[in-house]
């Protein structure tokens, strides 16, 4: 192991234990987050804290279904975040559409549009499941396996194609 790899490994350990999280709360997923953050389950002991702006955040937490209108905002938010950054899909709505699978206006699979590093399944997942999922994410970051943001840069054409298919050609609204 040379020096560069060793430095990268130390950096990954530091990154894994300090995660600022931006929660994009569209649906019922927001209900399970406050108990996870506050006294009972205490997310802060893992080094995870909520943050107010996308510039300062490391994790984008998408809780619940995305309609075509909100997907556009999520893409803006994701592209404003600074790499390394990770996306966590939360609940079955982000995996296959959940109970909204046949709705005319919702997105069924999130990972067609954004590189999801980790899914937390359930409808909705309990705080125990959320903590478990974050522990998994921390160990992935420490090992350097969570590379969704690099995947997004490498396959930008494919993601943009999918996004345009869902949102129409006006991917970025012009004012």
């Amino acid at each position: 192991m040379n020096t560069k790899e060793l430095i990268e490994k130390i950096k990954n350990i530091v990154r894994g234990h300090s995660l600022y999280m931006l929660h994009y709360c569209t649906g019922c997923g927001a209900i399970e987050l406050p108990p996870t953050m506050t006294s009972r389950f205490d997310m802060e002991r893992l080094g995870i804290a909520p943050m107010a702006t996308p510039r300062q955040a490391d994790i984008l937490l998408i809780t619940g279904y995305l309609s075509k209108k909100t997907l556009r905002r999520v893409i803006y938010t994701y592209e404003q975040m600074q790499s390394p950054k990770w996306v966590v899909g939360f609940g079955s709505c982000t995996i296959n559409g959940g109970i909204y699978y046949d709705s005319y206006s919702t997105i069924n699979r999130l990972d067609l549009y954004l590189p999801v590093d980790l899914y937390i399944a359930g409808c909705m997942p309990r705080p125990e499941a959320i903590i478990n999922g974050f522990k998994k994410l921390i160990s992935m970051i420490e090992k350097g396996d969570a590379k969704g943001w690099e995947h997004y840069i490498e396959n930008k054409k494919w993601y943009k194609k999918n996004q345009k298919k869902a949102l129409g050609n006006s991917l970025y609204t012009t004012r």
Binding site: V14, S18, Y20, T38, S39, G47, S83
Partner: peptide
């Protein structure tokens, strides 16, 4: 607040995490 709270070197991690970011605008 009746929580455990983070470890006392958590703020070092936060600061160095931001210094180790690969991009900044």
């Amino acid at each position: 607040q009746k929580r455990y709270g983070p470890v006392f070197w958590q703020n070092f991690r936060d600061i160095f995490k931001f210094l180790f970011k690969k991009t900044s605008i």
